[in-house]
Design a protein around this nucleic acid. Structure first.
Lengths: 243, 243
DNA sequence: GCAATAGTGTCTGTCAGACAATATAGG
DNA sequence: CCTATATTGTCTGACAGACACTATTGC
């Protein structure tokens, strides 16, 4: 089809049209105490003052989306790298009441120890436990010492979290992304705990071991956990290539 | 974390920053003659003059991404509705040599007859056959009467097509999206042909029938194909709810 | 030996692939 | 009856869930 005149003008004089702002929001995830968790920031200003939001920021004109996500990972979570994947782009009209903002959501998977380090390094971050109900709705809460306190979520960020958990659930069984949630060396029980937390089901022990070992992703280190008062478990390492 | 001043200013004065343009590109797909197919537009101007591109356009300031995709479906493919899904957002720096454009790709699935109708209605559209090699690279070609002629693809649109085929491959076996590629009533053989074209493998006939019938998605109509000189196949209908 | 968890073995049901057998339309 | 495709039936191997059993550590 011949390009219409409107398209032609639009392409060659893009400044003639109002343009949305483009942001990247990060779902920084881990598994903490048997539950999926994410890092949130408390909003101090309107709109949604007092609610919690995902860390994010605008995309600069001279950086790719992936670069923007990596930059924000460093700025907000104080780490140089992590497993990261683009999730979905949110572009509804009223999602930010101030102005038109389209957000490209990324999610990053972090081992629990690096998650804890980010929380120590930046006291503006809050550790949120995530629970998804049968309808796919996600609620965030935090342990404030007296138990579980709900954290109201700003913007459409509950929806972003829901997408992140569903993506993770869909991929964890057939892709090696689960290993990004564990330290370098880990036991099969720790791996199973991560899978159970993400999927929110309990898995059969021997079937899980069989399946994981048959995948060819696990390399026995020969080392074992120390300090247990019972039979120590073997430590495994993730082996990236299976061919 | 307290919002940084830069973020604050950015949020409240977004015009102070250069902003990328936001486009939506459509991967309009079907299965034609046993191969996945897409509708392309020939580019008459630089850059990529003489190459083929996916139909697309800019997102207006007062419409959501989904609305923009639906609008373009009507403008470019002349149809009111189709199964449509957001695919991925492409934001590399040099992807459009003229200016910074971020493209949100959507894909739509169309039955072969509506695909053919779009081609008749709009002679600017070209039917492209898609072939994906082992590395996931997609090549487009067309049947110009003398056989298969390659169609060079503009921008990063080969990558968009690759994402579309991979998404389709990943979902067709466990979700009912395959039915969006078939007319209202269809035979099990036609359904199998669609699956084989998408997955680029040949499937076992009885196992396929068993699996599909067990899914609970198929409703026998009691009617049969007419005009065959052999045993006529039964026509089925897709039944959306399985509960 | 006891407690507690790691790790193994075996049975069974489900399901997909292979492939043979039967059914039915037009001619 | 013949041809060509539709449809069904059966065997078999792969694999996951259930669950019991064995192994090993500190005390």
């Amino acid at each position: 089809m011949i390009e219409s005149e409107a398209d032609y003008l639009n392409r060659y004089d893009p400044a003639a049209f109002d343009r949305p702002s483009i942001a990247v929001d990060l779902v920084l995830m881990s598994v903490i105490d048997g539950l999926p968790a994410a890092l949130l920031v408390r909003r101090e200003e309107h709109p949604f003052a007092g609610s919690w939001a995902l860390p994010g920021g605008f995309v600069h004109i001279d950086e790719s989306l992936d670069d923007a996500a990596r930059r924000l990972l460093g700025d907000k979570a104080h780490m140089a790298d992590a497993y990261m994947e683009q999730l979905y782009t949110f572009g509804a009209l009223g999602r930010d009441p101030r102005t038109r903002v389209i957000s490209v959501a990324y999610f990053a998977l972090l081992p629990a120890d690096r998650f804890a380090a980010a929380l120590r390094a930046d006291h503006g971050l809050t550790l949120a436990r995530l629970r998804m109900d049968e309808d796919g709705n996600v609620a965030a809460s935090t342990d404030d010492g007296n138990g579980d306190t709900a954290l109201p979520l700003a913007f459409d960020h509950a929806e972003l979290l829901s997408h992140a958990i569903r993506r993770l659930r869909g991929k964890i069984d057939y892709s090696p992304i689960g290993f990004a949630l564990l330290p370098d060396r880990f036991t099969l029980r720790a791996l199973q705990d991560v899978h159970e937390a993400i999927l929110s089901v309990s898995l059969n022990k021997s079937a899980f071991r069989r399946r994981m070992l048959d995948r060819g992703w696990l390399e026995p280190t020969g080392e074992r956990v120390t300090g247990s008062s019972f039979r120590p478990a073997e430590l495994f390492r993730f082996r990236p290539v299976s061919s």
